[in-house]
Computed example of a mutant assay.
Amino acid sequence: MRAEGTFTTHEFTAIDTTPAFEVRTGTEVGIATMEKRYAGKVDGRSATYFTAAYDQATGIGTYVAMESFDGSLDGVAGTFNFAHLASTLGGDRVDEAFVIVPGSGTGGLTGIGGSGGLTVGADGTHRVWFDYTLGK
């Protein structure tokens, strides 16, 4: 099955963390939390941990996100986790990955598995889709 929707970010808060030891690279790593809200056949909200090594001046970098979703896909309500990552060389997204975390589904979404993706349109609209199955 496929569920598609759009999302907006309603909160983005940087987290001040210090690793066990410092490593200097060409791009600093940052960590933040986010709240996203979804509309469409994907309806609900997510709590997100967002990590990125990104150079704002060049637009080059990579992010990794882990989301906990509470809502519905195609009208079926529940919760689950999903992870995604992508890189950019200053333009289009490359080297993308998107996965629903096995065993994370609850409610009507118990047994969910699959993948998905996201795009950002020229107008700034963020679109997401899940290609998923529901098992028992």
Score class of each variant (00 low, 15 high):
Val99Lys: 13
Gly117Val: 03
Val76Asp: 05
Gly59Ile: 04
Glu22Lys: 12
Thr25Trp: 00
Asp92Ser: 13
Gly124Glu: 07
Thr8Val: 15
Pro102Trp: 05
Ile60Asp: 01
Pro19Trp: 02
Leu134Thr: 08
Lys41Arg: 12
Ala3Val: 03
Gly113Lys: 13
Ile112Leu: 05
Gly113Arg: 14
Val23Thr: 11
Thr9Ser: 12
Gly105Thr: 07
Ala97Ile: 09
Glu35Met: 11
Arg93Cys: 00
His126Asn: 15
Phe130Cys: 05
Leu118Gln: 11
Gly71Asn: 11
Thr119Ser: 11
Asp74Lys: 12
Trp129His: 15
Ala53Asp: 03
Gly5Phe: 04
Thr9Val: 15
Gly117Arg: 04
Arg93Lys: 13
Trp129Ser: 10
Tyr49Gly: 08
Gly108Cys: 03
Gly61His: 00
Tyr54Thr: 07
Ser46Pro: 01
Gly26Glu: 06
Tyr132Met: 09
Ala83Leu: 12
Thr9Asn: 11
Asp74His: 06
Phe69Asp: 03
Lys136Glu: 11
Ile60Leu: 08
Thr62Ile: 03
Gly114Ile: 03
Ser68Gly: 11
Met34Tyr: 00
Leu89Cys: 06
Thr8Ala: 14
Glu35Phe: 04
Asp95Gln: 13
Leu85Thr: 14
Ala39Ser: 12
Thr119Asp: 06
Arg93Pro: 00
Leu85His: 11
Gly107Ile: 09
Met34Leu: 14
Arg45Ala: 12
Phe21Lys: 13
Ala32Trp: 01
Gly124Arg: 10
Arg37Asn: 06
Tyr132Lys: 08
Gly117His: 00
Thr8Asp: 13
Ala32His: 04
Val128Asp: 01
Gly121Cys: 01
Ala57Arg: 07
Arg37Tyr: 05
Ile100Gln: 02
Arg45Phe: 09
Ala14Asn: 15
Leu118Thr: 09
Gly61Arg: 05
Phe80Leu: 13
Leu118His: 08
Asp123Met: 03
Asp16Tyr: 03
Val120His: 02
Thr33Ala: 07
Thr62Lys: 04
Glu11Pro: 00
Lys41Glu: 15
Leu89Asp: 13
Thr110Met: 03
Gly40Ser: 07
Tyr49Val: 12
Asp55Ser: 06
Asp70His: 12
Phe7Val: 10
Thr13Arg: 14
Ala83Tyr: 09
Tyr38His: 11
Val128Arg: 06
Thr62His: 03
Gly113Asn: 10
Tyr49Thr: 10
Thr33Arg: 12
Ile31His: 09
Gly124Ser: 08
Ser72Tyr: 10
Gly113Thr: 14
Ile31Pro: 00
Phe82Met: 09
Asp70Phe: 08
Glu67His: 10
Gly30Gln: 12
Ala57Thr: 06
Leu89Pro: 01
Phe69Val: 08
Ser46Cys: 02
Phe130His: 05
Ser72Asp: 14
Ala3Gly: 02
Val64Gly: 05
Phe12Gly: 02
Asp55Phe: 00
Glu96Gly: 12
Tyr63His: 10
Phe69Thr: 05
Phe82Lys: 04
Gly5Asp: 08
Pro102Leu: 08
